[in-house]
Simulated assay, not measured.
Amino acid sequence: MKLVFERMGFNPGLPDPTLYNRAFTIYLRHPSDLPVVQQMVKNNFATADRFIYLHSDICRSELDIEIEAIITEK
């Protein structure tokens, strides 16, 4: 899996992690992609963010990964 992800602060479009609780569910089509995705998460998200990784049959065939976010005020 070739993962292209550009780091831009705490991800443009997502609320500031110092002001909001951020939880992400990451669905992976291929379990073998987990180490690459975990490294991407480590390099691009806040340490306070929470993550759940699930092996899943993603609906859109062109996707290998899908990320769902739940964001609430602190």
Rank of each mutant, 00 (worst) to 15 (best):
Met1Val: 04
Met1Ile: 06
Met1Ala: 03
Lys2Gln: 13
Lys2Leu: 13
Lys2Pro: 08
Lys2Val: 09
Leu3Lys: 06
Leu3Glu: 07
Leu3Tyr: 07
Leu3Asp: 05
Val4Leu: 07
Phe5Lys: 12
Glu6Ile: 03
Glu6Pro: 05
Arg7Phe: 07
Arg7Ile: 11
Arg7Gln: 10
Met8Lys: 12
Met8Tyr: 08
Met8Glu: 12
Gly9Cys: 07
Gly9Trp: 02
Gly9Asp: 05
Asn11Val: 12
Asn11Pro: 06
Pro12Asp: 14
Leu14Trp: 02
Pro15Trp: 01
Pro17Cys: 10
Pro17Tyr: 01
Thr18Ser: 14
Thr18Gly: 10
Thr18Met: 08
Leu19Gln: 13
Leu19Phe: 11
Tyr20Glu: 09
Tyr20Trp: 15
Arg22Trp: 03
Arg22Thr: 00
Arg22Tyr: 02
Arg22Asp: 02
Ala23Leu: 12
Ala23Asn: 12
Phe24Glu: 01
Phe24Pro: 00
Thr25Val: 15
Tyr27Asp: 08
Leu28Asp: 02
Leu28Glu: 01
Leu28Tyr: 00
Arg29Ala: 15
Arg29Pro: 03
Pro31Arg: 10
Ser32Gly: 06
Ser32Met: 13
Ser32Pro: 04
Asp33Arg: 08
Leu34Ala: 07
Leu34Glu: 05
Pro35Lys: 02
Pro35Met: 07
Val36Met: 15
Val36Arg: 15
Val37Phe: 02
Val37His: 02
Gln38Phe: 05
Gln38Gly: 10
Gln39Met: 07
Gln39Asn: 11
Gln39Pro: 03
Gln39Leu: 09
Met40Lys: 06
Met40Ser: 06
Val41Trp: 09
Val41Glu: 01
Val41Arg: 04
Lys42Ser: 10
Asn43Trp: 07
Asn44Gln: 04
Asn44Ile: 05
Phe45Arg: 10
Phe45Val: 06
Phe45Ala: 09
Ala46Cys: 11
Ala46Pro: 05
Thr47Pro: 07
Thr47Ala: 15
Ala48Trp: 05
Asp49Met: 03
Asp49Val: 02
Asp49Pro: 01
Arg50Pro: 01
Arg50Ile: 06
Arg50Thr: 05
Arg50Asp: 04
Phe51Cys: 01
Phe51Arg: 04
Phe51Val: 00
Ile52Asp: 11
Ile52Tyr: 09
Ile52Ser: 14
Tyr53Asp: 00
Tyr53Ala: 02
Tyr53Ser: 02
Tyr53Arg: 00
Leu54Asn: 07
Leu54Gln: 14
Leu54Met: 12
His55Asn: 12
His55Arg: 10
His55Leu: 13
Ser56Asn: 13
Ile58Gly: 04
Ile58Tyr: 01
Ile58His: 01
Leu63Ala: 04
Asp64Arg: 01
Asp64Gly: 11
Ile65Trp: 01
Ile67Leu: 04
Ile67Asp: 00
Ile67Tyr: 00
Ile67Gly: 01
Ile67Pro: 00
Ala69Met: 15
Ala69Glu: 15
Ala69Pro: 11
Ile70Lys: 13
Ile70Gln: 14
Ile70Glu: 12
Ile70Trp: 10
Glu73Arg: 14
Glu73Cys: 10
Glu73Ile: 14
Lys74Tyr: 13
Lys74Ala: 13
